[in-house]
Design a protein around this nucleic acid. Structure first.
Lengths: 139, 139
DNA sequence: CATAATTCCTCTAGTCACTAGAGGTTCAAG
DNA sequence: CTTGAACCTCTAGTGACTAGAGGAATTATG
């Protein structure tokens, strides 16, 4: 059961050193034991927990959700439905965002195919962006 | 050509009053004319511009991209190729975002379908998120 | 027209999730 | 045992807002 310095932990988890200290400060991870010289020493579970955090963060979970999940993960007898709910909630968010972006994609690619005629003044995107704005800048 | 107070603008655009002032401060929107009593009065193009900003922000565009698009919209005689390039760039961004979210969606829905209605202890979601972590905490 | 309610003004400071830097201490390689 | 990398705490800065104080202007009502 070797232990890790904060730098080792950062290297293993992909979470930067100051961010690890920040997570400790806000109570997302526990304060680890220190050496005689006051340096942090982490064990394997601490690393796993940090990896969990990093992964969930990458997946776009909010800090709020993260905290909920960590709290739940710490209570092995808690009903799985609670975690399900969190994931389902996030899934719904993701679905909504995908739908939104797909609509935008259609709009953008339509603009691209329409905009091959001369200057910006003729482009549909400019119409969309500035509508009937009479350009105030001089050129 | 009626004009709007900042409150009207907020109501019409869905962007909050302090946020509008903030946008002006960082140069995202132009400082509008003022009344005798120093209150901002906006016109229709200003409202359109703000609506666009709100829309693009909702779509997840960065402020950077927003600024590019708005800058472009102000140069009506710029060659259309510039528009193409910018729109294509944003299209690529959108595509990447959709791809990323789709991968995430797969992962999330996989978690949901795999998890059974037991307790957190045997919930696959927690396993997936903690990357095969064997929970080391005590309870 | 007067007054009251509402909206507006500027300014400072707070939020979140970090990131950067100063100034100093400890650890590990040679 | 020395040196240099990594560590420590602390403060302050970032982006994109949001909240509040204290006061002036505008609008609605009597």
């Amino acid at each position: 059961m070797q232990d890790y310095s904060i730098g080792d932990l950062a290297a293993q988890s992909g979470v930067k050193v100051p961010t690890i200290r920040y997570y400790e400060q806000i109570g997302l991870i526990a304060a680890p034991p220190r050496t005689e010289g006051n340096q942090r020493r982490y064990d394997q579970p601490a690393l796993d927990r940090l990896k969990f955090i990093a992964h969930a963060r990458d997946m776009g979970f909010s800090m709020e959700s993260l905290k909920s999940m960590l709290r739940l993960a710490g209570h092995r007898e808690a009903p799985c439905a609670d975690v399900d709910a969190l994931v389902a909630e996030h899934l719904a968010e993701v679905d909504a965002r995908i739908a939104q972006l797909t609509r935008l994609r259609t709009e953008l690619s339509g603009m691209l195919s329409d905009s091959h005629h001369g200057t910006v003044a003729d482009c549909r995107i400019v119409e969309v962006l500035s509508d009937h704005e009479e350009c105030g800048c001089e050129h």
